[in-house]
């Protein structure tokens, strides 16, 4: 009797908890699906994303006349399976996003903590530099990176990291300022902790939530920037499948083969939507004060 009651209560709890925390279920489903397809793309699909199959080119999606079950979303200009390339495209988008957050995010976090805690001239110089960087339009700067260093995944990661660090540093800096005035930092100082130790062990964990929120709010934009650059042939070079570049390839075919441009763009929109949704949720949960962002 009691066990049944407990089981029942638990089930209610999960449902109410999801409702209470307002979990963005749709976003989570989309993100999990994309993660799975990105990681296991070679296992999920029997087709190759690179191998051209010319007799099979421009096949419409399976539900359209002339489509086949083998190519659910049809094939592209070289006869490659579109769905397969979309799966691999998720891998590219997510790799770029994670790498940019790792480089640019870490740089912003480190500089933000240093600027906020040490203050003085160092802090002033760092923050003024960050403000100046924020005024420079990132897409345009990334185009210069692309033409000088040549379009590649490394270039795009570098270009987007150069842009993202400043915004992260700005938010982290503000948070560090408020943490620094708290008693436990003073106590750590009294106890004789070195500046580096205080920053690493006392300040860093306390700004981590904010950091995570800022990063997740930027993820969608990073994915979108990568796609736009790849669309302009300034991003990931072919044949590596990237959503933006796939839309660009389908551009010349919108009258005859609309699906080539349509589905990669749809995947992109869904991915960005899910990332934004998730970022908003994380912000509301962890740090509602950042609503302004």
């Amino acid at each position: 009797m009691t066990t049944i009651a407990v089981a029942k209560e638990k089930r209610v709890n999960i449902i109410t908890r999801i409702r209470l925390e307002k979990l963005p279920l749709v976003a989570i489903v989309i993100l999990v699906f994309m993660l799975i397809t990105a990681i296991f793309s070679d296992v999920i699909t029997p087709h190759s994303p690179y191998e051209p199959n010319l007799p099979n080119r421009l096949r419409p999606p399976s539900w359209q006349p002339g489509g086949s079950q083998e190519h659910f979303l049809g094939t592209d200009t070289l006869g490659r399976d579109l769905l397969t390339r979309i799966f691999y495209g998720a891998r590219v988008s997510l790799t770029v996003a994670v790498a940019v957050m790792a480089f640019g995010g870490m740089l912003g976090l480190t500089l933000g903590v240093i600027a906020g805690y040490t203050g003085g001239i160092t802090g002033g110089v760092i923050m003024r530099t960050a403000d100046s960087f924020m005024a420079i339009p990132s897409m345009l700067l990334a185009l210069v990176f692309a033409i000088t260093l040549g379009p590649s995944m490394q270039t795009i990661i570098l270009a987007l990291s150069v842009n993202i660090w400043a915004r992260i540093a700005r938010v982290v800096y503000g948070e560090v300022l408020s943490v620094t005035t708290r008693d436990f930092i003073l106590q750590a100082k009294v106890a004789g902790c070195s500046t580096r130790r205080i920053m690493a062990l006392h300040i860093f964990p306390n700004v981590f939530n904010t950091f995570m929120v800022v990063i997740s709010l930027q993820l969608g934009e990073v994915v979108l920037s990568e796609a736009s650059l790849s669309f302009l042939e300034a991003g990931i070079p072919p044949p590596t499948p990237s959503w933006g570049q796939m839309v660009s390839e389908g551009r010349g075919y919108i009258t005859s083969a609309w699906w080539i441009a349509f589905f990669p763009g749809l995947a992109l929109a869904l991915c960005v939507f899910a990332l934004n949704r998730f970022g908003d949720w994380l912000r509301d949960r962890l740090d509602p004060r950042l609503r302004q962002l």
Binding site: G220, S248, G265
Partner: peptide, 14 residues
Amino acid sequence: VIGIAAPSFWVGLV
């Protein structure tokens, strides 16, 4: 939500 998430080049093509 759509305006922020959907890439403009794709919306343009659609």
